[in-house]
Amino acid sequence: MKNKAKLLAYPYVVWIAIFIIVPLVLVLVYSFTEGNIHNPSSLTFSLKSYDKFFNILYLNILWKSFKLAFISTFLCLILGYPVALIISKAKAKYKGILLLFFLVPIWMNFLLRTYAWMAILSPNGFINRLLQLIGLPTLAIMPGQTAVVIGMVYNFLPFMVLPIYTVLSKIDKNVLEAAMDLGANKIITFIKVIFPLTVPGIISGITMVFMPAVSTFVISQLLGGGKELLIGNLIEQQFTVQRDWHFGSALSIILMIMILISMAFMSKADKDDEGGAALW
């Protein structure tokens, strides 16, 4: 039985090696070298790319990327939690439809969705025309950080809703009844039982939103109008425009490390929750 399981795992091991390990090693190698990438023998060890990064200009971009990703993640949580709660409380027959309602946008092309938001938010877009029509001053949302955040929240919200909904729907109804039995009304039951039990869902929701948000370049390009350069755009430019794969690789590694550190903090917060539960 065990051997069979191992055998079945081999294709995945090969798959992981080809598509994950190899690219990662290449990126790592590029980031620590200089020379012509098309001629491997010309590559020499160098910290130049990392050195280049420690410049107020780039540090600012990294900072802004994290700031916008953080704001978007927070908004996703604030919006997504009640949505997950409502879906999980809905009658069984409406649950599927409600869930579908929130998932359908994911099946639409990511670019298309973002273009749709351009059409809504742009200076001559839907919102501003509507405002003009009723005689109100127009808004300058796009291009700008607000538009970028809106785009991120819209695109990544389902990734917050899903994991929270999953843990919510796994909570034993008896446990909520036990809380009521012991004197807790609906609000206290939420604060003392439901919320703490959904912390793992919140953590994975945050992870799943924060990671794509911090590294996105499409949303910032389209809705930021090229003004709101994020770390994702910077990396993309190194590979497409600047043709500096070494610097691009170094930036990728730095971003990856930053994400890993943030996630480590998150999972530590999750573990500490054992004691923190009493707090609630």
Partner: peptide, 18 residues
């Protein structure tokens, strides 16, 4: 239930796992 002076030991414990 929370207004009744009654407490319950549930068939399947229903403890707070957190």
């Amino acid at each position: 239930p929370y207004k009744r002076n009654i407490n319950t030991v549930f068939q399947r414990y229903a403890l707070f796992t957190h």
